[in-house]
Design a protein around this nucleic acid. Structure first.
Lengths: 141, 141
DNA sequence: TCCTAAATAGTAATAATTACTAATTGTAAA
DNA sequence: TTTACAATTAGTAATTATTACTATTTAGGA
């Protein structure tokens, strides 16, 4: 496990420091698209002196290396990090801000609207569903 | 023009102050999805003492009244306000952050992915294209 | 005209993120 | 194995968008 991560980071030209390995591990074992603060709190349990800045720097470095993704969704201010880099979309709970992956293939094949014409060089798109998760839909507003 | 705005604000239970009328006017004559700062700078030319806080408060009040919309897009931190409330989507320039409306009807009829199952009560979705506008696509990066 | 709640201006506070800097560490070469 | 240097880190300050607070002003009905 840990050796695989070390090899992977080296391959990307990133020094596999204790901090980076801990952050990588923390994100890879998350399913909830954590924000930097949450990763920071998780990692700090084992790695007491880590700084929040390091968490941000590391996540950005991972992102540049294509190891992880990130999302910013409506209804939540902070950037959320994503262990999955395969193309996919998201659905967000408007109350608890939970972000869940959507792998529906149809969402990946939406044709470019003709009204764009030659005005933009399209690089991609994303679809973001929003609503209330089961817990929040049941709870009182 | 101005009387129509006064009537409209009154109908929504909003006092039609000079500031509100100026902000409304400034947004309605914008095509570029301005952020609060930009509206503030525009309005301040005529209304020297207006405060940024008032711009934010007013835009939020307009939003609650359903008079305007707002978008937050990837590649840009700040909230952008939208004179158009009809359902529509957006395309964003990744360099200059310009936001353009997309009224393509097909984008408004995307079926809910079956993988959501009963996990979420869906309230809506949005599609956001991104790329480079004609100006930025030509310019050097 | 007077009264009251709503709105405003000005400023302070907050939250997420980035910038800065001195100290530390991984690793390639000697 | 030791050395040297660039990369990384911790700690803190700065920045940016937005919201909160508060005293003052204003719109609009009694």
């Amino acid at each position: 496990m840990i050796n695989a991560a070390i090899t992977l980071l080296r391959k990307k030209g990133l020094k596999p420091t204790q901090q980076r390995l801990a952050i990588y591990q923390a994100l890879m074992t998350s399913r909830d698209h954590p924000h930097a603060q949450k990763i920071y709190r998780k990692v700090r349990k084992k790695h007491v002196t880590i700084s929040l800045n390091t968490v941000y720097n590391t996540l950005e470095a991972f992102k540049r290396a294509g190891l992880i993704g990130s999302v910013k969704v409506l209804h939540d201010e902070s950037a959320r990090y994503d262990p999955t880099v395969d193309p996919h979309n998201h659905i967000v709970c408007m109350k608890c801000k939970k972000v869940t992956d959507l792998f529906e293939k149809k969402l990946l094949r939406i044709p470019t609207p003709s009204e764009i014409g030659g005005e933009f060089k399209i690089m991609g798109y994303r679809v973001e569903f929003f609503g209330y998760c089961r817990v929040c839909a049941g709870a009182s507003p």
